[in-house]
């Protein structure tokens, strides 16, 4: 017979709960079961009213980020066998308002994503008839890792600065900003620099590096932020050397 593990799940239903409370479920599990499968067992067999986001089950859609025993993680690729004998404590992602249960309000991230201009601003426009831009594997490598962000928000839940100052653009969006700046096809770095160097930009980061540690896709947002600190600082000082008005 399967073993069981205790899952303590944070519940918050704004229409009936005064504040968040933990609810405990006993979940049978096998060695191949993820935390997500544990939650699905609860939803199907024990309590239909528990709400959480999920979809692909394979760590690519980015839906199922949550705090698992106090650490930000994707529930689909965290396995109950590694958390036995338990109990396992499941909470909504840190630093975001809770919409309900494990579902957080994530509009803030979407707003930030929209602000970084996350699209190619062509360095040299090209028609479809002219075919593809040439890009060597070495040029691809400069940004590929940063393009692997699945928007799961674990880095935001890990970032102490974002917790203190929600205006901070934050690790994920800055990594994506850097992804476009570092793309050989893109010429939009100057347009994006204003945000990089702004009050809510890279200089908020105190280089804790926890964002990169929790990233499930090895994007290394801390690296992206640091590269932009250097660029923004150079840009700032170069501004003094150039005649007034020449900065773009």
């Amino acid at each position: 017979m399967a073993r069981t593990i205790t899952m303590e799940v944070l519940r918050y239903r704004p229409e009936q709960d005064a504040g968040p409370v933990f609810q405990t479920y006993e979940v049978p599990f096998t060695d191949d079961m993820s935390v997500l499968q544990g939650l699905l067992h609860i939803k199907d067999e024990l309590d239909e009213t528990l709400s959480f986001r999920w979809s692909c089950r394979m760590a690519i859609c980015g839906s199922c980020g949550m705090m698992i025993n106090g650490k930000p993680a994707l529930s689909c690729k965290t396995f109950l066998r590694d958390l036995a004998p338990g109990p396992v404590r499941i909470e909504a992602l840190n630093h975001f308002p809770i919409e309900r249960d494990l579902v957080v309000v994530m509009e803030d991230f979407i707003d930030k994503l929209e602000r970084i201009q996350p699209y190619i601003i062509p360095k040299e426009p090209r028609t479809l008839e002219q075919g593809e831009y040439l890009q060597t594997p070495a040029q691809l490598e400069k940004y590929e890792q940063f393009s692997s962000c699945i928007n799961c928000l674990l880095c935001y839940a890990a970032c102490p600065q974002y917790g203190l100052n929600p205006d901070f653009v934050g690790p994920g969006a800055l990594a994506l900003l850097h992804r476009y700046n570092a793309d050989s096809r893109d010429g939009g770095a100057a347009q994006r620099m204003e945000l990089v160097a702004a009050e809510e930009g890279v200089f908020n980061c105190t280089a804790v590096g926890y964002c990169s540690e929790v990233c499930p896709k090895h994007v290394d947002p801390a690296n992206a932020v640091n590269q932009n600190k250097t660029t923004a600082a150079a840009d700032y000082f170069l501004g003094f050397l150039k005649p007034k008005g020449s900065r773009t």
């Binding site: 699209y119 190619i120 090209r126 593809e132 831009y133 040439l134 890009q135 060597t136 594997p137 096809r185």
Partner: peptide
């Protein structure tokens, strides 16, 4: 490709 899709490349830069 023009919109930025990171297609894998050959050494000469073609897709």
């Amino acid at each position: 490709e023009h919109w930025g899709c990171p297609w894998s490349r050959k050494p000469d830069g073609h897709v």
